[in-house]
């Protein structure tokens, strides 16, 4: 399958990255080349093979008590905010 300009525009929208119109063609070419190279995986017979999702397979997720172990650090967290006011993050209006 090949990646065209409209596909790149759609993916960029999914990824929430603005891509200027004039860069779409170039990116489509790049991604098409990379995905074409990746498609050599089709040569591998994977029928009946289970997918490996983690290197920690066989490890069971640990349980812990549902309790606060860290907190009360509002000001530390807001210190990195691009804009903060009265203990809150400031973002553009969501509802007009």
């Amino acid at each position: 399958m090949s990646v065209d300009k409209s596909t790149v525009a759609r993916i960029a929208q999914l990824a929430r990255i603005r891509v200027p119109e004039e860069e779409l063609d170039g990116l489509a070419g790049e991604l098409d080349k990379i995905l074409g190279w990746i498609e050599q995986l089709d040569e591998v017979d994977t029928d009946g093979v289970a997918p490996m999702t983690s290197n920690a397979e066989g490890m069971t997720l640990r349980w812990r008590r549902d309790e606060v172990t860290d907190g009360d650090r509002r000001d530390d967290i807001l210190a990195n905010a691009p804009e903060a006011q009265d203990g809150h993050f400031v973002v553009p209006r969501v509802v007009e």
Partner: peptide, 11 residues
């Protein structure tokens, strides 16, 4: 793509 790659990873 993704599932295929994870199977290759198993192999």
């Amino acid at each position: 793509y993704y599932l295929k790659a994870q199977k290759v990873r198993t192999l």
